[in-house]
Design a protein around this nucleic acid. Structure first.
Lengths: 214, 214
DNA sequence: TTTTGTGAAGTTTTTCACAGCG
DNA sequence: CGCTGTGAAAAACTTCACAAAA
């Protein structure tokens, strides 16, 4: 079953929403309601969910728990992914905190931290060992870590990556830097650029203002 | 001039890339090179840039500075956007730090912080006044703040928003929570869900593994 | 010769609209 | 009657391929 990328993105949104719906509200939800809460058309929601077969009840809607579990079976990890975080500044620390909270639900573990600050290297932070960035290739390999989250300054990113890819266990990178990083082509890289989102918001606000003045 | 959303997204990437190219490398760059560095086809890059008219030199490429300035004129803010951050945990603090660094380049200022912790409310953090979340409507209005960044726990998000929208100055929200927030329809909301990106990475890695075993 | 700029073709994604089921 | 599931139509987006400029 081949599922388009925009659909994947929305399924992740549906799952997050359903987790809340299950706690707070009833058991049944319609495509229309899901759509309204997320700013998506009902028809789009139904098309996305049609991948799971005839899972809704006509005239009624979808059973939230059943729907959640279908999405989770498709998207969810079947095993624990071992991850590491490079860069233990505020962002890195925020990630550790969230990760420890979220990791029960979503299956991943933070196995190692990396930094260059002497007061961090060699200590445990939130119970996780912090190593020097220069040892990243060795440690990732030793621990069999497959995913690296980069929360370092931009100008350190390529250096970190070059060392990290020495570990043949590494398969994916999530980067919070705005650096363009170069990796062997068998490694998957996703980027989150916080300030690009803020810029996008400003741009759309500006557009909106210009429209109003005409 | 109407520009499609995927194009906007890529233009932001080009701008980030060009800022680096201008520092480090030469003055001239081709659509092919831009594409390779960002994982985009050259023809796509050229189509995106064609919005600016005939700005490149055939047989040569684009002048990096000129190109940067064209993109920045289109996307960049024409004035300083006043912003506030709700939630001064690690994530909020990371944002303040970046914001103070980035705000010189991109035109915005952080005018106020909001939290509920007694040891934060009433103090200055990195030189910015921190107020109680319950006063957010009043303070945003007083200071004429137009953009709110939410870095609070999920379950506080709707409460914050409900108060914040009392300020008629508020135009846009950037949320780092995974909460589905409900706002008046004249307020623009963008969301960044860090863990959704991580999940997406895991999903694609899983897909890749399944493909290999067949 | 190299690389742009761009119509036209191709592909992907969204929306429509309605039959069909509970 | 209300809401799903889904082909078919429409819209949006990307890629091709090549003439034209430097």
């Amino acid at each position: 079953m081949k599922i388009a990328e925009p659909t994947i993105e929305r399924l992740l949104q549906y799952r997050t929403l359903l987790a809340k719906v299950m706690e707070e509200d009833g058991k049944i939800i319609s495509s229309q309601e899901i759509g309204e809460l997320l700013g998506i058309k009902g028809s789009q929601v139904r098309k996305d969910l049609s991948h799971f077969g005839e899972i809704g009840k006509r005239g009624v809607g979808y059973n939230a728990e059943q729907l959640y579990s279908h999405i989770d079976t498709l998207l969810g990890s079947t095993r624990i992914w071992k991850t590491a975080i490079a860069g233990v500044g505020h962002l890195g620390t925020a990630l550790i905190g969230h990760a420890q909270y979220e990791s029960r639900k979503f299956k991943f573990s933070v196995e190692a931290l990396f930094d260059i600050a002497p007061d961090k290297v060699g200590t445990k932070i939130s119970g996780i060992d912090c190593y020097h960035v220069d040892d990243i290739g060795k440690i990732l390999a030793e621990k069999g870590i497959e995913v690296l989250v980069i929360a370092s300054p931009d100008n350190a990113a390529q250096h970190i990556v070059d060392n990290a890819v020495q570990a043949k266990t590494l398969k994916g990178i999530l980067s919070f830097t705005s650096a363009t990083i170069i990796v062997p082509k068998d490694i998957l890289v996703l980027k989150v650029n916080v300030f690009a989102e803020l810029e996008k918001l400003f741009f759309y606000l500006k557009l909106g203002e210009e429209k109003q003045t005409h």
